[in-house]
Structures are given as structure tokens and as C-alpha cells.
Simulated assay, not measured.
Amino acid sequence: MPLKKLKVLDFSTLLPGPYATRQLADMGAEVLRIEAPNRPEITRDMPPFDEQGVNYIHSYLNRSKRSLGLDLKKASAVEVVKKLVKDYDIVVEQFRPGVMDRLGLGYETLKAINPGLIYCAITGYGQTGPYKSRPGHD
């Protein structure tokens, strides 16, 4: 597997980020999804479901990944991420611009902890410009 030495922290939801990190996982990267325990991933509730009630889309997008539930609005969860990022190569996030900074987990903060970190921010309308704060993806 060409990416078996890479470790990815995945803060994304829905389709764009999970699809990208699934591609990395399929090529051997270790992907750890950070999920909000009090707000389930939307794709978990979208039909179609298999015989056990598991969503096909969620299973497809998140195969080969591990998952950790953290409420990023809590300081203790932010500290967990800061410890984890020391040993990870890549962060993928899909929040609106500025959200990771407000959580205390923005690029500059994480780069100070791990100078070799690759930080990928996926947004519907980019990091700058008149539509940067609008939600959107795909």
C-alpha cells in the first residue's frame, strides 16, 4: 500500500471530505475520523440501509477508517486533538472558514505543534471572497 506510513486526522462530514479521506485510506493511510458525539454524521441517517439498518453511503465513505467521538467545543477534547496531531501527517477539515481557529485548532495552532503537518481545508466557496461563510460542498 503506497500510503501505509501516512496518518490522517479527518474532521469532515457528508461527501467531499469523507470521499477524499476514503481514497487515502484505500491507499493504505491510517485515517481517524473525529465525530461529534452529540451530532451524528448526517449520512448515517440517509437511506438506503442494509438489513441491519446500517447506511450504505456512510459505510462506503468511511470504510477502512477508525472513528473517535469528541465534542470540540470542550477544552478537554481540544487537548486530545492537540496530543494526537503530534503523531499525524495530515489534517482534513470541512468547516466554514474560521471555525477551526475558533475551536483552538486552526492551522497556525496545529502547525506550531507539528511543523511538518499538511493541513487541508475543504470549503464550498473557498477561504476568501464574498461567499466564504456560506455553507456548501461538492
Rank of each mutant, 00 (worst) to 15 (best):
K5D: 12
D10E: 08
L15N: 14
A75F: 12
V81A: 11
I113S: 02
Y125F: 02
L70T: 06
K132E: 01
D45K: 13
S133P: 04
R44K: 09
S59I: 12
A121E: 03
P135S: 12
E79N: 15
G69Q: 05
K65M: 06
Y88K: 00
R63I: 06
Y125N: 01
K111S: 08
A36D: 10
L105F: 15
T43N: 15
P48K: 02
L105Q: 10
L3F: 00
L84E: 07
N62H: 11
L72F: 06
G53P: 05
K73Q: 12
G129A: 01
L110N: 09
V91K: 00
G17S: 10
P47H: 10
M46L: 15
M100N: 04
Y19A: 11
P2R: 14
I122K: 01
Y107L: 04
M100T: 03
Y107H: 04
G98M: 05
L24A: 05
K73M: 15
G124N: 03
T109I: 04
V54C: 13
V99K: 10
P130T: 06
G17I: 02
K132T: 00
R96T: 00
F49E: 14
S67N: 13
T13Y: 15
E79W: 14
V92W: 08
K65N: 09
L32N: 09
P18N: 07
K4I: 06
K86P: 05
I57P: 03
N38E: 12
S59K: 11
R33N: 12
P135Y: 10
I113F: 07
H58I: 10
Y131A: 08
N62G: 03
L103G: 10
I118F: 02
K74V: 13
A25N: 00
G129T: 01
K82N: 10
G28Y: 07
E51Y: 13
N38R: 08
T21I: 01
L14D: 13
T13S: 13
G98A: 04
P40C: 15
R44H: 05
E108Q: 01
